[in-house]
Simulated scan of single mutants.
Amino acid sequence: MMNTKQHSNPLRGFQTSQQQQGFTLIELIIVIVILGILAVTAAPRFLNMQSDAQAATLNGIRAAMDSASKMVQGKALIQSVQGQQNGTVERVDGVNNVTTRFGYPIAAWTGSFENLLDIDVPGEFQQTVVTTRISTRQNGTNLNIPGSANNPTLVIFPAGYEAPDNSRNNSENDTCFVYYKNNIANNTQRPEIEVVGDC
């Protein structure tokens, strides 16, 4: 008697199909539409990060200006120059003194904030001094930057932006800056330091 073994089929129980399935055209279109909607809603958030970073940097500069003005005012009290309209506060190094108005740094870069802030001007940032009030521009945009010949305002803005101006239209990028103005109407009040961060 011959031993005949039957070989079992290892694929028994699995059915092979000649028909392969994939995504239908409708399913692909739905996925593409959903990805398009996500891209439209998410892209502006990612594209606006540079603007947010510049606004945050301006807020940091504002805080540094505020801290520096408080330190200079404290030093002016110690040196008894807080009541002088035009005074000088000596720094510890004795080299880079700070010009003051009623004990606070004057609204200028040279002789004042260049000796107090560690920012790249000119370079990453630009500065200008405003000697006339900038309020409503021709297109109706309100910047509201104080300034006069006897009490100017220091304006610091990122490189690539323009200095604020009354004559420009809204399309021009001059609404990204921080400004510093001494308060001479009441010499006991702190300077006005504001950020306009429409970067």
Rank of each mutant, 00 (worst) to 15 (best):
G87S: 06
D93Y: 11
R91E: 11
Q84N: 12
T99V: 14
A76R: 01
D66K: 14
N97D: 12
G83F: 00
M65Q: 03
G94F: 05
L77V: 05
S67N: 15
E90T: 13
M71S: 13
V95M: 08
N59G: 15
D93W: 09
Q79D: 05
T57C: 10
S69C: 07
G94A: 02
Y104C: 02
N86Q: 05
I78F: 15
G60S: 15
V72N: 08
Q79R: 00
S67V: 14
F102S: 00
K70A: 13
Y104R: 01
K75M: 08
G94C: 03
V89A: 12
R101I: 01
A56L: 03
R91D: 09
E90R: 14
V81G: 12
V95Y: 03
G94H: 05
G74C: 08
Q79H: 01
G87H: 07
G87T: 06
D93M: 10
Q73M: 11
K70Q: 15
V72K: 09
T100N: 10
N59V: 12
V98Q: 00
A63F: 13
K75Q: 00
V92E: 15
V92W: 10
Q85T: 02
Q84P: 06
N59M: 14
M65A: 03
I61K: 03
R101Y: 04
Q79V: 02
Q82T: 00
V81F: 10
I61R: 04
Q85Y: 01
S80A: 11
I78L: 15
G83D: 03
V72R: 10
Q85S: 00
K70S: 11
